[in-house]
Design a protein around this nucleic acid. Structure first.
Lengths: 148, 148
DNA sequence: TATTGTTATACTCTATAACTATA
DNA sequence: TATAGTTATAGAGTATAACAATA
């Protein structure tokens, strides 16, 4: 692995930021199936962390509650999640993924994410490892500084 | 560097996408100074590639022309760029960065990008190198499949 | 007629503030 | 009164379609 010069480190924040913005745009243009990235994220969270209240979805996705409300409304519309009364708290409800939701997620993971999968498929194993690690680093950056 | 299993590679597109969405949110929340990431990108492009027509800004930033129009209007408002008539084409104009614009960009690069710089600063040189390389990979993904 | 740029319109993502129902 | 959730409102980012000016 190449040594990183001080100048490069200094430029990294800006470069990372710009790369992220461009990548997002690109992903939006290519589409990732029928679901927007934000909705995919919310759906994946519901899938991974079992039935969740809307507030818990908001916390995990690190968005405000009204934003979660909106995401959930759309996932519900499409039959990708269900909402049932929370037996312990009449104000709340529990959101769970449906078979359709799970199927869509797996579809995305397996083949539907055509654009990204293709590009990634054309890369070396070393590049995959780099991106894996980069994803971990990004996640740690996001998670850090948010004491919960 | 750890070996990447086939399953991990398969999950990579989704994980990357989700990580990107979360990172973007985080960056937006932290703010990157007074300028949004999209405007920083446009300003950096004008800085790097000299006087550009609005169409050229759109191409380089990979956004549609109306979007570029909007970005430029805001950069102009803030005095970060100037617009002068294009001597060769009466329909067009040339956008150039101002000293204020350049100063703001340097500020961002040097110290203002507090959140990212801090997190990055806490990482090892190896992690920096990983992110450097990841940025390159992302840029290549974005640039790829766009024959210009 | 083709191209550059702008305006009109619309949709997504996201936030804050205000409101409703329940605790 | 405090909390969970929703609704109302607003602003950024972005796109497509329609339009004006110039080539």
């Amino acid at each position: 692995m190449a040594t990183t010069s001080p100048a490069a480190v200094q430029a990294l924040p800006t470069r990372l930021r710009v790369a992220l913005v461009r990548m997002q745009r690109r992903l939006r243009q290519e589409g990732g199936g029928d679901l927007s990235p934000a909705l995919i994220g919310a759906l994946a969270t519901v899938d991974r962390h079992g039935p969740l209240t809307p507030s818990e979805v908001a916390e995990r996705e690190r968005v405000q509650r009204p934003t979660a409300t909106r995401f959930l409304a759309r996932l519900l519309e499409r039959g990708l999640v269900t909402r049932t009364a929370d037996p312990g708290d009449g104000r709340s409800s529990l959101i769970a993924i449906t078979p359709d939701g799970r199927a869509l997620l797996h579809e995305l993971r397996d083949r539907k994410d055509a654009f990204l999968s293709e590009r990634l498929g054309a890369m070396s194993a070393a590049d995959h490892a780099t991106l894996e690690r980069a994803v971990e680093l990004l996640e740690s950056i996001v998670a850090d500084g948010d004491q919960r």
